[in-house]
Write a protein that binds this DNA or RNA. Sequence first.
DNA 1: GTGAAAGCGCTAACAG
DNA 2: CTGTTAGCGCTTTCAC
Lengths: 345, 345
Amino acid sequence: MKKRITIHDIAKMAGVSSATVSRVLGNSTYPVSAKLRDKIVKLAEEMHYIPNMIGKQLKTNNNMTIGVIIPTISNPFYASVMLGIEEVARKKGYHVLLGNSLQDGKIEEAYLTTLFEKQVKGFIISSISDNKKLLMNLIDLGLQVIAIDQKIDLPEVQQIEFDYRRGGFIATSHLLEQGHRRIAYVSAPLNRPSRQSIYEGFLDAMQQAGAQDDEVLVQIANEEKEIYDGIYEFENGKALTANLMDLDQPPTAIFACNDLTAFGVMNELVARGLKVPDDVSVVGFDNIEYARMFTPALTTVKQPNYEMGKLACTMLLDKLNDEAGDSMDVLLQPKLIVRDSVGKL
Amino acid sequence: MKKRITIHDIAKMAGVSSATVSRVLGNSTYPVSAKLRDKIVKLAEEMHYIPNMIGKQLKTNNNMTIGVIIPTISNPFYASVMLGIEEVARKKGYHVLLGNSLQDGKIEEAYLTTLFEKQVKGFIISSISDNKKLLMNLIDLGLQVIAIDQKIDLPEVQQIEFDYRRGGFIATSHLLEQGHRRIAYVSAPLNRPSRQSIYEGFLDAMQQAGAQDDEVLVQIANEEKEIYDGIYEFENGKALTANLMDLDQPPTAIFACNDLTAFGVMNELVARGLKVPDDVSVVGFDNIEYARMFTPALTTVKQPNYEMGKLACTMLLDKLNDEAGDSMDVLLQPKLIVRDSVGKL
DNA sequence: GTGAAAGCGCTAACAG
DNA sequence: CTGTTAGCGCTTTCAC
């Protein structure tokens, strides 16, 4: 293991001062004679000089890295967001640190503090904790934060959200337009604002259509298990659908709070010998890749997650570089993706 | 935005030297009187002291972060690996930087160099580049590397691989055991060793069963498109299956090189009015979460990807801390997951 | 048990 | 144009 070469080594060899070397190798705009410049560049190459960014960071107090904290990367929704974030970060010379909070506020806070100690000045968070104190302290110390998907109620935090309520509305409207009246909403617990909003969108549409109370079927799980993968959602969809279909008057259409849950819904229906969409129609939410691969292909509501990642990162880097225009919040609009899981009644 | 507090500030307030403060706050084992210790700890808390790890890093030349470079986090296989990596890293106080190489050797190399400049000393890579020169240089300078999934042919690099060949073998054997003879293998281009190995495993099993040449059907795509998501694999599965079923004597079973491709296979079969597994049996490879959610649930070969992530990270951290026993390579064994997509002939 | 001082690798006033 | 110098925040000998 060789000794690492520093600008001082180069300076000594070139017979110049380390300041000159720094100016050349650090692409400073500072004037240096062509002769010296060449000499230094050549020497650096020969010696395989590799700059030590830690030294630079300590001096300039600017490390080009941002932090991303999400519930779990194993959820394809966040994987997509992450891909978008990383892409714009890379193109602007930033690196991305990933933290999975696993729905645990303690882990989220630990990441916030330890990364801030490493001088990470920008974060993109899908927050799970409602403890604003730590975040406020850090923002006071110069931290920049973009909240995605889950709102963080602080004026300094910029929000990028989906219009979940509208998403719930258009999905339900689609079902109504196809003639369905007895429509069920199937969901994980409403402990996240997003789920609450989709539910409200569902109710909006049903109410607007003048639905009777007995036509509005709702199945919401009581408790949520760990979310290391999509299995909980799937099982939840199955279980709640079982409840629904055991009813005297089962629904003719089911709207699920996300695609994973919709997969569970369809699975249970098929297990009972029912056909989708002939016997029961199903609509999902998220438009993960697999929605189009399923048979029947799932009609669902698309959230622009990859785009959300790109947008979030762009906004964050702008803020970090003081290029932030008016710091506006963004509400991304959903889009209905019609496939084969909904039939006319 | 407040000024940041340093150990010198604390030292001044406490009327001690910064060395003493460092000893207390850095949990050094160095003896400090209980009186001073208390005073300093209390003061640090009151002043909301936050250590600057960059200073520490410059001195100790040890930043607790590792780098992960994979083709794309939007592939659920890698998302799972990443989750495993991050979990053990977090528990040992490390942070994880994520880089998506997008199958581009240039991007991979750029990550390698820029992260190394940031003094990242440990990497977990699913490599796409075959340019060993850069990697060798960095290893010479103290870099530690674990290769996952894709082998890197350097003695200093520890390998964690899957036994793809055996996976291909057991999947095919399963089909043979169910009485199938005309079995097709459907794959993306064999430009990655993993795909080549699965294919070899397929041939092993067919040969061992004494299959006639005309019973061994092979469909391999010519070229691969971008892999930002799973769509290519899906479409590829559809297209190659179409070729297969247009044959005079189509196969009774199809083995796909991964689950995404298998989804495409099933989709095409259903589109042609064929039933799985009644008319044609299908086996996948990977056991991604969605395999069990599909109808029919996909019989497939499980790769322990989450476990691979945990193992890779454990091995890397051991190496970084010189706790590496004999640096052994690992060949993780596959397991057949029997579900509902294969029928007896 | 405590402090003084050097220095990790780099940048940036300032002086020449 | 180039060099000298100070210092970013921290740890760690070494001396007391």
